[in-house]
Amino acid sequence: MIRRYSHIFGASLVAIVSLTLYSAPVVADDELDCIMCHKYRGLSRIDEDGEFRLFYINQELFNSGPHRRNQCKDCHNDIDRIPHKPAVKVDCAQQCHIVEPSGEKRFTHESIAETLARSAHGKLDAEGNPKPFQEDYPDCKDCHDQPFYRPVSVDKGTIHPGVSERAVTRCKSCHKNGDFAEDFYEHVTSRLRKTRFPMETIENCAKCHQDPEFRERHELDDVVTSYKQTFHGKLIALGSEKTADCLDCHVVAGENTHLIESQSEPASAVYKTNVPATCGTEGCHTQAGPYLAGFQTHVTYDREKYPMQFYMLIFFKGLIAVVLYFFLALIFFELLRRLFPNFTFIREKR
């Protein structure tokens, strides 16, 4: 919102610099001047359930993502004055004031909400009845915080993160006005790759799927821990972006990331017959043989479910323990022997 108007300030500065040099604060641009208070880091309270509520808005970070062209009121449409009562929870599926340029309609996240509703994460089952443990099913905000742009650039054939000044300069030779070129550049290039670093995606799924109580309620394995034991998980933990995170394998082919189905659904990307195709996705295991699908990804070393792994693990752990603790004991006693070299229970003659 600030960026959107800063060009106006720029223009007015040039025009009436002598008159209003000090009267054009960059910050006051929304109708209610929300930022007048919300720019203070300490604007906060503790709510009735003991939760810490912080109302601070970091303008710099707010302006680093796709929502920067929205005004506060576009989402928080219940606020009409200040000081205001506690705000109502934002409904992401509502229409905002941004006009969607391809269809000239007002923008909304409604279609995403619809996709989510028919996925494994939807609150209703196939017959339209509420699934048990309703409060466990996610809303937008359970997975998403304020999104950031993650632009990429291609310079001299190398791809690297960040905005390419060279590219933006080219855009700006025609699109001179304001920040349109920067906005558009970041909007498009952020979609050329994942909008989140894989580790963040994994931590996000882990918020529920690693919670033992949650898993018990829904009879789910600890898929996050078992995933982190795979090469996929380990390489991502070491900073790779080239290997598969949760979404790469679990999103239904050809759909957006919000359509994740249970592995028991035939449409699911991880349904038995779909696994080879999922592994062979472009950029992944394209050369793989059909048997790669037989590799077990989420191994929990449960004796009933994964007997081979369980017994191999027991064998190796036993082997390691026996060999090493034997030698550790040997060395310990050898050192002890050196402390009292002349002592012995039975003295032998030469």
Binding site: L61, F62, F148, F197
Partner: peptide, 24 residues
């Protein structure tokens, strides 16, 4: 919480249920 944008990393206190970022 840690957000990696590739060209910069944002580390900030994690507050459950918070949508907007703090940044420091």
């Amino acid at each position: 919480s840690r957000t990696d944008l590739g060209f910069k990393v944002i580390e900030q206190p994690y507050i459950e249920g918070r949508f907007h970022h703090i940044g420091f």
